[in-house]
Amino acid sequence: MTLPLIPPMLATPGTLPPTAQDARWAYETKQDGQRAVVYLQGDGTLLLRSRSGDDITAAYPELRPLGEALRTTSAVLDGEILALDEQGRANFQLLQSRMGLAHAPARAARMAARTPVHLVLFDVMHLAGRSLVKVPYSRRRGRLEELSLEGPYWSTPGAVVGHGTEALEATREHGLEGLVCKRLDSLYEPGVRSRAWIKIRNMHSEDVIVGGWLPGKGRIAGLPGSLLVGQFAADGRLRYVGGVGTGWSEAERTELAELLRAGATDVCPFDPVPHVASARWVVPRLVGEVRYSVRTRSGLLRQPSWLRLRPDLAPQDSAAHLRDDV
């Protein structure tokens, strides 16, 4: 390869910039997909590398025509590979069926016909033989948009300068994962998690009912490593919605261990019984509140973390009920 290998710049979790600095930032929709650095040699070929540097080109055959989009101009681009649901929103669960197929091209081709991906482009780090990593974001973004990279399986969505509060609210209203704030004067820092890029993830919170747990390992052996939680379906069954393994202090973990031991039972309270190895069941009487990003199509909570116990709520009186659209 004649193009330089450039690991992707990473964003730091945070909050919106101060209002007084709003005009110094651009705002892009945070996408829930697989990060990819795109190498266009200018000879019609395409190379995709994951965040870890692995060659993932063969996993996404529908993106190969992008190699000819700039004709003889070479480029290194930054983007995110998405799988879109019926509403046109990124769905990581759908994407998982496409990931990991770089060494199975025949299967990748079949999956591409069934679940095509879409590549969102948001930066350019090298263009026509010239490095752009020391060029400010605002100018890089302008160069990227001038390339007019729009196709059947790729696009270059716009960025909004200023109006951060409104941009974040728009992502919430449309059920999107969140927002990435990028300082207009920021340089591209390969492989660095930089404060010049800030990511804000939209999170939801709901009540859940604890129906089991998994033992911790190492220093937390004998204590809960994760809680198995559920919510009531319309027919009254307690449906499993996932395992929660983060969000506790040491004192809270110890308190939970005592409550779980007191409620131990040999009967699984979930219907249907989830396939969770080494699960220990409890009488479903503890209500807690969790934070999560999105639900999968099967109703599981993605990236859940524990917020607090709700001793003020009884299971049947809580808001721990599955949504009708799950």
Rank of each mutant, 00 (worst) to 15 (best):
R71E: 06
P224Y: 06
V117G: 10
L40I: 15
L48A: 10
G230L: 04
R261S: 12
E255D: 13
L132E: 00
D55A: 04
P18H: 05
V244P: 00
G129N: 06
R261F: 09
I198P: 01
V283L: 11
E252I: 11
D317K: 03
E189W: 00
Q316G: 11
V117Q: 09
V180R: 07
R64F: 06
A26E: 01
S74C: 11
V160L: 09
G178L: 11
R239L: 13
G245P: 08
C268V: 06
A314P: 07
E206A: 10
G247T: 07
L46Y: 04
P224T: 07
E289G: 09
D55W: 02
L40E: 11
L214P: 07
D123I: 03
F122M: 09
S52R: 12
P284N: 09
E169V: 15
A170N: 10
T29G: 12
R297V: 05
A36P: 05
E150D: 14
V229P: 03
D43T: 12
I56A: 02
M111Q: 14
K199L: 03
R183V: 00
H103K: 15
Y153T: 13
M9L: 08
R114I: 15
F92P: 02
L227T: 12
L214D: 05
L259W: 08
V117C: 15
A262H: 12
A11C: 04
D32G: 07
V282W: 04
V37W: 05
K182V: 07
S293P: 00
V282F: 04
D123K: 06
Q87H: 03
D317G: 02
V37M: 15
A102S: 13
K30I: 01
H126F: 15
A108F: 10
V38D: 13
V37E: 11
E258G: 13
A58G: 12
V267W: 06
R239M: 11
A279R: 02
H174P: 07
A277M: 06
S278M: 10
D266E: 07
T254E: 15
A20S: 15
R295A: 02
W154R: 10
L322N: 09
W248M: 06
V76Y: 04
D207C: 10
L94I: 00
S278T: 10
S293R: 12
G247C: 08
R183L: 01
L168S: 08
V161R: 08
L238V: 09
P152M: 07
G42Q: 14
Q31V: 13
I198R: 07
A279V: 01
V37D: 04
L176A: 14
V37S: 13
D271Y: 09
L147E: 01
D266L: 04
